[in-house]
Design a protein around this nucleic acid. Structure first.
Length: 432
RNA sequence: GGGGCUGUAGUUCAGCCUGGUUAGAACGCCGGCCUGUCACGCCGGAGGUCGCGAGUUCAAAUCUCGUCAGCCCCGCCA
């Protein structure tokens, strides 16, 4: 018996007999012939069953089939397997029908989000749903690959923390052997501390926000792609780093997820330079071009969309860096702009109307940091372990974080970020 | 935290405004026919606590109130 062949490799076996293992994706029983679609990790293939061996099989049965690979114009995808034999590897135990049809991309894409998530174990098997996570996988791989080439070290920091890092955001409280603890909202402090060790670090990890928002772009647990780099000479170094990083991520997605992108009719931007605007310039443009009143130096959801439209028209870019936010709107560790103490060396990256990154240069001087903590009415003693790193010498540094699900949502034009999380944790979903 | 909306078959929805016999459609499912299906086709069939509770009424999916669940927008964030 020949070894198992992946469905994606069947073109190399035309005219040969192969063994394929997978699931009965779709079964169509006609008078004297059956057509089945069989699905494995790599794809779906039509199986022609002239001996009616599959007549009593059911959707999602796990099978091993063998037969000859035939090039056939009438087959979907131009290739099919003439069934010679089938073995049942896994039984199914549902009554009459699956709760949702997963063989049809069209019917899966018409499901209400609630239903899509309720039957997540099934709906994820749909090739189009599965494609989202292949893209996410490429994004994470490309992120790692690019940074490792630049001598970054991947770190893994604790998600159980004693105190807030940035204040403001709501935290999940947990009981830690009788002590009050929290789920980390960001690896911020730890990645900065690790700049004192490795100079260049990144982390791929979940972070937690207990905010009771319920929108198509928020999750209470999301995958944060965190970067922190030492010995920078300014904000520009960070913008350049992220530009190169995204260029690489987009290139990889384009190369490795052609099929997946097609399923979503998605175009990945081909970036050269990402336009850079200060928040002051942005609010000016919004007022001038769209008559939007300025309410402080900040961007609301509508503003993010409008500036995206403007940048797209003006420079043909779907991404834009917005820089130099007011210091007061940024966390206490943010480096003040030397040319205007009201502003900060910070930035957001907006992609197709959505903020996918926040970053900036950090304060690296111990005294300055203590000062800023006190200015905000916080107690430096609460940050002693963090401050110790600075007491013992830190280089000028900065970093940023990319929201992985947001990035993937925007690449694929998903209507809701929850679709980019396998088992999303939002206000209403703790299970599955 | 503020505002808007939805809940009817396994799924996606119509019916509600203007109350009236047995609540419909499409897809899916079951049985029959069909050797090129791929939105197959044809014949037959099963499937409903109209989210839940109360009220108004001769009569409620439909009107009113309450309640639970979900969706969208804003704020805040990645």
């Amino acid at each position: 018996m020949p070894a198992r062949v992946w469905i994606e490799d069947l073109w190399n076996y035309v005219g040969k007999e192969v063994v394929v293992r997978g699931w009965i994706h779709r079964l169509r029983i006609l008078g004297g012939i059956n057509f089945a679609l069989v699905r494995d990790r790599s794809g779906v293939v039509q199986v022609v069953d002239e001996k009616k061996l599959l007549s009593d099989f059911r959707h999602e049965n796990v099978v091993e089939i063998n037969g000859e690979v035939i090039e056939e114009k009438r087959a979907p995808g131009g290739i099919e397997i003439r069934l010679k034999g089938v073995k049942l590897l896994g039984e199914v135990y549902y009554e009459s029908h699956l709760p949702v049809q997963i063989y049809s991309d069209r019917s899966v894409s018409r499901l209400k989000l609630e239903t899509l998530l309720k039957y997540r174990v099934l709906t994820l098997r749909n090739p189009r749903q599965r494609a989202i996570f292949k893209v996410l996988n490429t994004v994470v791989d490309a992120f790692r690959e690019y940074l490792k080439n630049l001598k970054f070290t991947e770190i893994h920091t604790s998600k159980i923390v004693a105190s807030a890092t940035e204040g403001g955001a709501e935290l999940f409280k947990i009981d830690y052997f009788g002590k009050k603890a929290f789920l980390a909202q960001s690896p911020q402090f730890y990645k900065q501390i690790m700049v004192g060790v490795f100079e260049r670090v990144f982390e791929v990890g979940y972070v937690y926000r207990a905010e009771k928002h319920d929108t198509p772009r928020h999750l209470n647990e999301y995958l944060s792609l965190d970067v922190e780099i030492g010995f920078i000479s300014g904000l520009e170094d960070l913008l350049e780093l992220e530009t190169g990083l995204l260029k690489h991520i987009f290139k990889k997605v384009r190369e490795e997820n052609e099929e997946e992108l097609k399923l979503f009719n998605a175009q990945v931007p081909d970036i050269e330079e990402i336009p850079r605007l200060t928040i002051k310039e942005v609010t000016g443009i919004l007022k001038r071009e769209f008559g939007k009143p300025i309410i402080g130096l900040d961007l609301d959801t509508e503003g993010e969309r409008l500036i995206t439209d403007y940048v797209r028209k003006r420079w043909g870019s779907e991404l834009v860096f917005v820089t130099h936010y007011p210091l007061s709107k940024r966390p206490m560790y943010t480096y003040p702009d030397p040319s205007n103490s009201e502003l900060s060396l910070s930035f957001d990256l907006i992609f197709r109307g959505l903020e996918i990154t926040t970053g900036g240069q950090r304060i690296h001087d111990y005294r300055m940091l203590v000062e800023k903590i006190e200015e905000r009415g916080l107690n430096p003693d609460d940050f002693s372990y963090y401050l110790d790193a600075f007491k013992f010498g830190m280089p000028p540094h900065g970093g940023f974080a990319i929201g992985a699900e947001r990035l993937v949502s925007k690449i694929l034009n998903l209507p809701n970020i929850r679709m980019a999380s396998l088992f999303p944790r939002d206000r209403h979903h703790l299970c599955p």
